[in-house]
């Protein structure tokens, strides 16, 4: 028997750690999705730079919505800080051992890359912008040389991978939280972000199957994720390629999730107790129901049926993927805070 009684009563720490509320899961979700959008855009840019037919794949303009979502994510992050007026202190230093310091600098560079990438073909999604400010149109045209597109593509892919992995490493670097303390969180959040990004493009595909598309602030950015660079609607096979990619991302995510649990249940007592929080504890219904079943297995099944022409393409699997991606962050952030290094019952 081991019975511990403590007089400590600190807010956010007792009876169990709960320092992070909704803001951090929102930030991690958008961060992962933006990372996925950057990687998808980078791949598309490489293909355009190579001179491939731009109508056969999704747009290079995913960073436009990514840039807008980045502002939402960073706002959520700012709202979480309890000493907000001192946020500038992050950019007065670089702390090589702190994942959050790495992430802050990666976010800053990614912000610049997203802003530059959003300018590519911006006249297609926000024509009013280039009409009002012709200099934006000239900047956009200047970015379209193959060499500059290739440079932007590598920057998007490199920093997209960095941003996606960082959102997981941010949590996994904490030895005090056994549920988080696994490097698998990095690639898990990266692939979850990729599937969320593909899902967003898929939703745009369904809602705006071709031109004419909306050209407003949000509608233009959203439609631009799918609009072909040419004047015609995209080829039918393109949507299937997107769905196939999403099934692949979700499959890898499922394997990584299984490896995360396997690593925990085959480790020490603290890790086993942490795994139990997900497997059979307070977060089990959300973990099995919202993440594994509704967020991964069901979308994979639906998308395979879509690919086999058994059911028509709908936005349902994509919406499930987005909800599952958010649930993954929400559950892991909360369940991880509930996990702790256990004191040995014998000495």
């Amino acid at each position: 028997m081991l019975e511990i009684t403590s007089t400590r009563h600190n807010p956010f720490v007792d009876p169990q750690l709960h320092v992070w509320g909704w803001e951090i899961p929102v930030y991690l979700f958008f961060g992962g999705m933006i990372a996925g959008m950057m990687i998808l855009a980078g791949i598309a840019m490489l293909r355009v730079a190579r001179g491939e037919d731009p109508e056969s794949f999704f747009s290079v303009q995913t960073p436009l919505l990514g840039f807008m979502l980045m502002n939402v994510g960073m706002l959520a992050l700012l709202l979480d800080l309890s000493h907000k007026l001192y946020v500038w202190a992050v950019y007065l230093t670089f702390e090589p051992l702190s994942p959050m310091s790495w992430g802050s600098w990666v976010l800053l560079v990614a912000y610049g890359i997203l802003m530059a990438s959003a300018l590519v073909r911006i006249g297609d999604s926000w024509p009013w912008l280039t009409r009002t400010f012709p200099v934006v149109g000239r900047l956009s045209a200047a970015l379209e040389t193959p060499s500059r597109l290739r440079l932007l593509a590598f920057a998007n892919i490199g920093f997209g991978i960095g941003l996606g992995i960082y959102t997981g490493i941010l949590l996994s670097a904490m030895v005090a939280r056994p549920l988080w303390n696994s490097a698998i969180l990095g690639p898990l959040f990266l692939f979850s972000g990729l599937s969320a990004a593909a899902a967003m493009v898929h939703i745009a595909v369904r809602i705006f199957p071709g031109r004419p598309a909306p050209q407003g602030l949000v509608g233009g950015a959203f439609a631009a994720m799918w609009q072909p660079l040419g004047a015609r609607a995209p080829r039918a096979g393109t949507e299937n390629a997107l769905v196939r990619a999403d099934v692949g991302f979700l499959g890898v995510e499922l394997v990584l999730l299984a490896l995360l649990l396997l690593g925990l249940v085959t480790a020490g007592a603290s890790q086993i107790a942490a795994a139990q929080i997900l497997i059979s504890g307070a977060y089990a219904p959300a973990f099995w129901g919202a993440i594994v079943f509704a967020g991964i297995v069901l979308p994979i099944a639906l998308q395979l049926l879509e690919l086999g022409h058994r059911i028509p393409h709908t936005v349902v699997p994509a919406l499930l993927v987005l909800a599952g991606g958010f649930a993954l962050r929400w559950v892991l952030v909360n369940a991880g805070q509930a996990s702790q290094v256990l004191q040995s019952a014998s000495r």
Binding site: D80, L81, H83, A89, A173, A176
Partner: peptide
């Protein structure tokens, strides 16, 4: 006056 209140240290 350098702490931003990210609370990572509390979790760590």
């Amino acid at each position: 006056n350098r702490c931003i209140g990210c609370k990572a240290c509390l979790a760590a």
